[in-house]
Simulated assay, not measured.
Amino acid sequence: MRTDKLQVADFHCDVLSKMQASPDMDFKNDPRLDVTGERLVAGGVELQIFAIYLSASRGRPSFENVLGQIDLFRQKIIGAESLQWLRWKEEVGKRTAGASPWGMLSLEGVDGLEGNLFYAQLCFELGVRFLGITWNYANWAADGVLEQRNGGFTEKGRMLIEWCNDSGMLLDVSHLSQAGFWELADLSTRPFIASHSNAAAICGHVRNLNDEQIKALIAMDGRMGLTFYPWFVCDDGKARMDDLLKHIDHVCSLGGEKHMMFGSDFDGIDTWVENMEHPGKYPELAEHLLRYYPEASVKGWLYENAVSYLRTNLPSQVSKS
């Protein structure tokens, strides 16, 4: 595999939250950002998912701030940088050679929907395609992974699951409590993802998935995005690329070779895996992976596993027209 022809899909970054906090940021090449337009191109990133995350520093989560980040994405990323906006399964694989990368929107925690399913519908109509149900704590829909009671979904949260199943909005369990994970596995009619989580058997952080959760994702043909936050990679928080290989090996040992992808968490982290500080470093990661794994597997983890999930599970524009 020639790394100058690299194709990468990254399922999680927090650029929008940073840009909302600092409106003077320029997505093209601002040094305060990990992910920039120039680095996406340099790193071969053909698809980047941008999370809408409402930081506690902005006060009570509100739908107004959700709309603000959607507008930032529309004007400063899609508009200013000419990224293509991926929303429908018919668009998957339609990117032409030399064209700008695809961008997608996810919502990290439904707190800002304020318990209103009409707001969820508006997000879908405005192009959001993934809902991460919680951040780390409880909200109106479910408990997060740091909520000590480890509760599942509320009644309104179960209504949200039903609406997502009907509408085609896809669900993301990174940050969701274990009880919530298993309840969703029972109730969802669509395979879900963990956009930025690693293997708990390798690094015991509470945000990582245990073997039974990973096996459940595999069984439903969901996806697991390995993340680069050092504290999710190794217990001492001093992560190198070789430490990522331990997670890859473990997920493969559970049968997940076709279900892994990457969700960097760039711009949501303040420490980095050595030599993986931004998306422009993906060619270095690819070269490292190719020393140990077959080219077909590496292509899958970097891009093809993610894209095959989207091709199968994104909603159809034809059915919505």
Rank of each mutant, 00 (worst) to 15 (best):
H196P: 01
M169P: 04
L83Q: 02
A201M: 08
D71C: 04
I49H: 02
S106G: 15
F153N: 02
K281E: 10
V92M: 02
W163I: 05
A219V: 09
F181Y: 12
A200H: 15
F228M: 11
A80S: 07
D34T: 06
D221G: 13
S177I: 11
A185L: 08
S106I: 02
S321Q: 13
H288K: 13
V145N: 07
N139P: 07
K89C: 02
H205A: 10
G151D: 07
S197E: 08
S82N: 13
S319A: 14
G144F: 03
L131C: 14
S253N: 10
R190E: 05
I218N: 01
G127D: 08
Q213H: 06
L217S: 03
R74V: 00
W301L: 07
V318H: 14
E183S: 15
A216W: 07
A201W: 04
K320D: 06
P294F: 11
Q48K: 09
A42L: 10
R291P: 00
M241Y: 08
V145A: 07
V15L: 04
G268P: 00
P101Y: 00
L86T: 04
L47H: 02
V145R: 04
Q48V: 05
G168I: 07
G255V: 11
E274V: 13
I214E: 03
G115K: 08
G204A: 11
N275Y: 09
I133F: 04
R240I: 02
F11P: 00
Q121S: 14
E183P: 12
E64Y: 12
W85D: 03
Y137Q: 14
G300Y: 09
A138V: 14
T227G: 03
E183I: 14
A141V: 12
I77D: 01
S100H: 11
L209V: 10
C252R: 15
L67F: 07
G180H: 08
S319E: 13
V173W: 03
D4C: 07
H259K: 11
I77K: 01
Y282R: 09
I193C: 07
L16H: 06
E162A: 14
I78P: 01
L47K: 02
M1T: 15
L33F: 06
F228D: 06
V110C: 13
S174W: 11
P315A: 10
Q84D: 11
I133M: 08
F232Y: 10
W140Q: 10
K215I: 08
S253K: 14
I52G: 01
A51V: 00
D14P: 00
W163R: 09
R207I: 08
R2I: 03
L314C: 03
E287M: 10
H288D: 03
C164P: 07
K281A: 08
D4T: 15
A200S: 13
G255L: 12
P31R: 09
N65M: 11
T227R: 04
C252L: 10
A56Y: 10
D14S: 09
Q121R: 15
Q121T: 14
G180P: 05
G151Q: 12
F153C: 05
G127M: 06
Y293S: 05
R311G: 05
A219W: 09
S195H: 06
L72R: 02
Q148H: 13
D249E: 15
F266N: 03
D270N: 14
L245M: 12
L122E: 11
A21L: 13
V66F: 01
S55M: 05
L122M: 14
V173A: 13
P315L: 05
M19I: 06
L176Q: 09
V66M: 01
S55K: 06
W182M: 09
F181L: 03
